[in-house]
Simulated scan of single mutants.
Amino acid sequence: MQVLRKLLFPISLVYGLIVFLRNRCYDIGIFSSKSFNTRTICVGNLSVGGTGKTPMIELLVKSLHHDYQLAILSRGYKRKSNGFLLSTDKTSVEDLGDEPFQLKSKFPKVVVAVDADRSNGITQLEQIVKPDVILLDDAFQHRKVRPGYSILLTAYNNMYVNDWYLPTGDLRDSKREARRANTIVVTKCPKNLSILERNEIVNRINLKEHQKILFSCLSYNKDLKGVSVNLAVLKDKKVTLVTGIANPVPLVDFLLEEGLTFDHMKFNDHHFFTEQEINVLKGKECILTTEKDYVRLKSRLTNLHYIEVSHQFIGNDKEVLEEELKQFMTTNS
């Protein structure tokens, strides 16, 4: 696969040129970016693959929902509906997409909507819901919208500063666009990340004056949900790990560190399971999966546990982010 990606380098040059021209058109005003009256907080990345966007949206919801009426707007990747859709109690995972459905399931009082056209989605939410703040999930590259505050995520083991354009690398947007972020979060860091290495990363990223950089690692909850048990109980069972996420490696590593033995059935990100695959899974003794996969499987399987994941900030970085959010919300009221 790596050899093939290198052979496709000429295509990545063409892709990079297209990205440059598109951003340049926004920079000089040929394409327009729209600001909205409603406060908007964008969470996104510059690359394809998992950087922890959904757990970051969850963290923002937990930080803000007590004081503000929130709405979450997502594209709803691989959903089976079109256009703008406002979730209700009857909206299915197929209608919303797995990640928005996960968020709606976890935070039923928070408005969740999907629209590939983020500008239209915000307009609809302003007219129908009138929220205090809209959280834009995976929208950093959508320059038709100029968010009030932007959080850019980059994974520790594949930071955008070391990456290259698709298909040779994983970048879907220019590294230069990181300058638009208010806060850059380096996710999936080792828990023992040293101050020296943090400083080295800061130097490589070369922050602008208005930017903050924060560091987080993934934290897995050992109290499993679905069929609720502690993770330790599964050590005595024949476990099948089922993942349909961009990068299951951190989860696999965590489970191995916990002493779990398991078979791993790996599917593509946002995979919708066929009847044949479900029948195979029904024959498994014990299935452990991710929260995102669980929302696609829970109505079809009974022997199902899922593990929650969240961002655990290093040092006092969580307090730094909360203060940033507080300043944004109070100065834009």
Rank of each mutant, 00 (worst) to 15 (best):
T54Q: 06
L86T: 04
D223E: 14
Q141M: 06
S216C: 05
P190H: 02
P248T: 12
A139T: 08
L4C: 14
K282N: 15
V48S: 11
L152I: 01
S105V: 02
I287V: 09
I213R: 01
Y294K: 07
L125C: 15
S219L: 15
H305S: 13
S81H: 10
L136H: 02
Y306D: 05
V239H: 04
L241Y: 06
D95A: 13
N192C: 14
Y156Q: 12
Q2R: 11
L234K: 06
D317K: 01
P167I: 09
S150A: 05
E258W: 12
A155Y: 00
E58K: 06
G16I: 15
L103A: 04
G259K: 09
N157K: 08
D117P: 07
V43E: 00
R204F: 11
Y156E: 07
G52I: 00
R172D: 08
K238Y: 11
N268W: 06
L135K: 01
L193N: 07
N268H: 12
N303I: 12
T183W: 00
E209P: 07
D263F: 10
L153P: 00
G121K: 13
Y160H: 05
V114R: 08
A181P: 11
R204N: 15
K238L: 07
D117G: 12
Q2S: 12
D163A: 03
L152H: 00
I28C: 06
T51I: 02
K109W: 10
K53Q: 01
Q2Y: 14
F9V: 10
Q276D: 13
T289N: 02
S12T: 12
R24F: 03
E126F: 13
K222Y: 15
M329R: 00
V48G: 08
Y220V: 12
Y294N: 07
S92M: 09
F262T: 14
F328A: 01
I201F: 08
A232Q: 09
T290G: 04
W164E: 13
D117R: 11
D138F: 01
L103N: 06
N230C: 15
T168F: 12
L153C: 00
N199F: 13
I11T: 04
